[in-house]
């Protein structure tokens, strides 16, 4: 009989950066920091063009669906278009 031990690894800023940049083509995570529980990212992407603040956050939240509030306790983010980031 085997037992699958539920090992949880804390998320790192690098993991978030990689996953965001992979999920939103052309996006750039210009800042990522924090510990395993409170993380902060700044994202610049064309994909935010024409989207409300809430829809921008939803786009990012979808990448981490099911993990926010759980494994990723808190993710603070700034979502800007290249124009806004200038």
């Amino acid at each position: 009989m085997s037992f699958e031990l539920p090992v949880i690894n804390d998320p790192t800023p690098d993991e978030l950066r990689e996953r965001i940049e992979a999920a939103i083509p052309g996006s750039q995570v210009t800042e990522a920091d924090g510990d395993g529980h409170h993380l902060r990212v700044s994202i610049v992407s064309d994909a935010f063009e024409g989207l409300s603040r809430i829809d921008r956050h939803r786009l990012v939240n979808e990448i981490f669906a099911g993990e926010l509030g759980g494994r990723i306790h808190a993710l603070s983010m700034s979502c800007k278009t290249p124009e806004e980031a200038k």
Partner: peptide, 25 residues
């Protein structure tokens, strides 16, 4: 709300956002 985290602010029945969005606004 289809929004995963707390806090959540609603104004006139609409979700405005969480802490990041409210502090930006």
């Amino acid at each position: 709300s289809n929004w995963p985290t707390i806090p959540q602010l609603f104004v006139k029945g609409e979700l405005v956002g969480g802490c990041d969005i409210i502090t930006e606004m």
